[in-house]
Design a protein around this nucleic acid. Structure first.
Lengths: 346, 346
DNA sequence: ACAGCCAAAGTGAACGTTCACTATTCTGTA
DNA sequence: TACAGAATAGTGAACGTTCACTTTGGCTGT
């Protein structure tokens, strides 16, 4: 949803030259190496560049030098999480006749945001699709020259799609488990710095509340298997849950392991659900109930928003289900079901 | 290792115009929409374009139109297989001041090869790093304008690095298992269309031979968990192996599941090894012995070769271990070890 | 037969750099 | 003081397109 934009003419080498009182070629030299220039000249150009906010036009440079500074990496469509998102976005962009450049980033949300905006302002791209969370609504909507679209999936300010993809399956998991007779739940959450982790946590609490169930708590984790193990081991023996909603499959497998260490049977004593449908889920003993997200679809739709924002063609969005719960062996009715009357939905 | 290259001046719009006996602007129009031109003119240009092998210079076009036709996708470093390779390559390219464009491809090796060469010849990139197998040594080294580097990791004609990364860990796995007392092995291979699957199979057979062990066979699979389950279920009850080398973690978890279905204990009756170090491996019951590949390192080194090929700076390659065996619970001495004298290495 | 018009094609400039020269200014030494 | 030679700066063209105009030519209608 978040979309920064702006068409603003950028200063050229000649304007910098005029402001600095030198020739354009001198500025060119300055750009190339900053060498062979008198300190005074250097400084004047420095000032002019700073003042105009000059950034070289890399297209023009490439044209002249016949070097693009670009490499291409060709790789098969991968099948894992972010890679899947990317894959969907790439396919859509290709359909729209666009070339995609992937920039890998790391660091804090603030760093990321800066990097994204720099990219948008670089004049190298028509638009930027950020599959990474951006620092929330700051004054960043400054003229940047390119459209920026941030996936709600990853946006720190969680909105529509985020709730859609995240809340629904959690509710579905809990409702079904409640119908199987479960009354006491535990949620092992993911790193709360992630919007998806927060959304799942919120959805968990809401569902518990809505269906009138009991939560023995929410264990704030960090997406790690250890956090799952820990969460189980620390539980009060006389108030154990019968079902655990884990933030993802790794956490869930940690939960299962923790349960075994305490002598609890899964799913006999404890039902466990994961998230992501890791390839191994189907073969674990017990095979893990999980949520499969159509990341390619999400990626495609995100790309479509960007393509539209930069004036590209309107393509067919993915309109099928985004999330799907896969029920497997790790979920079953609790051993001594005290009450299995259906829970009212809504 | 494979490196195609060639610097060749490409024809321009004016040359096409001259050959077709029209003005450059007419060719420009032809390029834009092929409309508003008399059929005869159209045809003449068609012929000229064909004859010269003309392809528009997209840099020049972008410069004039101020549209790049490029989108950027910004994403966090991912942690899975190809994404990890990509991540390493991206980091290296960034260090060398290069921008990377990722093109996702699918289809047969021939299609891929064509796509890669087209990309190389498009003038849009300085070089192409192919992390995908290319059709083996054909006459494709035609002047393409950009360097092409194919990762041996993925090259169909397996060479040095491939052997290095694939053979060594298999040998290490088998040697250690043999030292634990295992004598009878099974290999559940991956899809033999993949170089890596073939390499692991070859390495398995060589190790069995070198250490004087017994193999109850090689089950050719398809990287799926089912292939692992099947392989175990079909085994002759009176000639069971005590150790299984699975092509990857998914296959291995299938093997474990198959073993349980047959009432075999892992690792009591059967030791199992995987490959890839899937995040869930550590938490499976039993946690899975596997091989961790430093894909970022491999990706980096591949990118370094390309960067060097296109005249970029020489960066520090990753020189640490590429593969590492992680020993976990799924491997142990066989229940009734008949003989545990160490196996001679070499 | 001729003005009027539309389609088809042409002309030259412009996009923002860098390249290959040429011109100017400094520096040190005879 | 003068002069060579380096160091520094400037000039104009070129890269390959597309844009905004202008020109040409064929056809229509009166």
């Amino acid at each position: 949803m978040t979309e920064y934009s702006a068409p603003t003419r950028r200063p050229t080498i000649k304007e910098v030259a005029r402001l600095a009182g030198v020739s354009h070629q001198t500025v060119s030299r300055y750009l190339k190496s900053r060498q062979g220039l008198r300190p005074a000249t250097l400084e004047r150009i420095d000032v002019a560049v700073e003042e105009l906010g000059y950034r070289p036009n890399l297209m023009a440079r490439s044209m002249r030098t016949r070097r693009t500074g670009r490499l291409a990496v060709v790789m098969p469509v991968t099948t894992y999480n972010q890679a899947r998102l990317l894959s969907g976005a790439l396919a859509a962009a290709h359909e729209a006749g666009r070339v995609v450049e992937v920039v890998s980033v790391e660091g804090s949300a603030a760093t990321l945001t800066e990097r994204v905006l720099e990219l948008a302002g670089s004049g190298q791209v028509d638009g930027v699709l950020s599959l990474t969370p951006m620092a929330a609504g700051n004054g960043h909507n400054l003229p940047s020259g390119a459209a920026v679209v941030v996936t709600p999936e990853f946006d720190d300010a969680m909105r529509s799609i985020g709730e859609l993809t995240d809340a629904t399956p959690v509710t579905e998991l809990i409702e079904r488990l409640a119908n199987l007779g479960h009354r006491r739940f535990l949620h092992v959450a993911g790193d709360q710095a992630f919007a998806s982790a927060r959304a799942r946590k919120v959805a968990y609490l809401e569902a518990i509340d809505r269906f009138g169930l009991e939560s023995v708590g929410v264990s704030d984790g960090d997406w790690s298997g250890e956090s799952g193990v820990e969460a189980i081991l620390q539980l009060d023996a006389d108030r154990l849950p019968t079902a655990v909603i884990a933030a993802n499959d790794v956490v869930a497998s940690g939960v299962v392991r923790g349960a075994y260490e305490r002598g609890l049977d899964v799913p006999g004593d404890l039902s466990v659900t994961g998230w992501d449908d890791n390839e191994l889920c189907r073969f674990l003993p017990p095979s893990l109930t999980t949520v499969r997200i159509n990341l390619e679809g999400v990626g495609r739709n995100a790309a479509l928003r960007l393509i539209k924002a930069v004036g590209g063609p309107e393509l067919e969005p993915w309109s099928g289900p985004v999330a799907e719960v896969i029920w497997r062996e790790s979920t079953a009715p609790p051993r001594q079901s005290t009450d299995s009357s259906p829970v009212g939905s809504r």
